[in-house]
Simulated assay, not measured.
Amino acid sequence: MKGRGKTEDGGGGARWLTTFNDMMTLLMVFFVLLFSMARTDITKLKQFQVSIMKGLGVLEKGEGAAFGLIESFGDKGQYKATVKGRLIPEGEELIEDYMKSLEAFNNVEFQLRGNDRVLVLDGAALFESGSADISPEAVPFLKKILKIIQASSCPVRVEGHTDNVPISTEKFPSNWELSTTRAVNIVRFFCERGNIAPERLSAVGYGELRPLASNDTAEGRARNRRVEIILIESEEE
């Protein structure tokens, strides 16, 4: 008799837990629907859903779940799919295709810094030594990069970098002026050739202050003479 009583108590506890889980699931759906009635920021909705799912223990084994509910809200034309919980903006597949078309070039390197995509361009392929004028040979290459920018809608920052070999001319008193002018000229190229909105673009020059390699070797100095084009997809604080 005692054994049967324990079994019945255990069964009652399990039934209570099932009812509780059903109630919490309904509450989650209810709050998501309320949240969506306002003008929804898709990123905030994602964060909201993650917090709810964590609270229910849905993501206890990791955050690799697909966020299917998110795709039911907001501007459906803005996002196409989710991959490993990351929202994929419409047009990104086209961007990836354009990036693959650049793989044949030896003067470009692709990096991913957080959510930002970075194209590291060999400075020697863009400019003559000591010059900030874009070489004619670089124009077809920059046009391919321009297609990537046109296919996206995120802000783009162009950074100029040099090695530590000093320069002192009337036009470029230091590497700061040289690197900044190079970045500005590429931004101007994107605006004039691609009709990119100027407010999407920014230019900055770091001179020799942010090297990727040691300046003690010719190979290191060549690597440091570069232009970085950054597609900024990380959230601004």
Rank of each mutant, 00 (worst) to 15 (best):
R210A: 11
V187E: 07
D216K: 13
S214R: 06
P211R: 03
Y206V: 13
T180N: 14
L178V: 09
K171A: 14
R188E: 11
N185I: 06
I148A: 02
G160Y: 04
L178C: 07
R210V: 11
N164Y: 08
A151S: 14
N185P: 04
Q150Y: 00
A222P: 01
P198M: 14
G207D: 07
T181L: 15
N164S: 15
P173N: 02
R188D: 11
E159L: 15
K144Q: 14
R182E: 12
N175P: 06
L209Y: 05
L212T: 11
R188M: 04
I196R: 08
R157G: 08
D216I: 02
N215I: 09
C154M: 13
A203C: 10
S153F: 10
R226E: 03
S153D: 14
Q150K: 15
R200P: 00
V184T: 12
E177C: 04
L146E: 06
L209V: 08
P173C: 07
L212W: 06
I196P: 03
A183W: 07
F141V: 00
N175T: 05
H161P: 02
I167N: 05
W176A: 12
V165C: 01
G160Q: 01
E159M: 14
C191A: 10
P166F: 01
R226C: 09
V187A: 05
V204L: 14
A203F: 02
A183H: 10
T169K: 07
E192V: 05
K147P: 00
I186T: 10
K147W: 03
T162A: 08
I148T: 08
R193Q: 13
F189I: 09
A197T: 05
D163K: 04
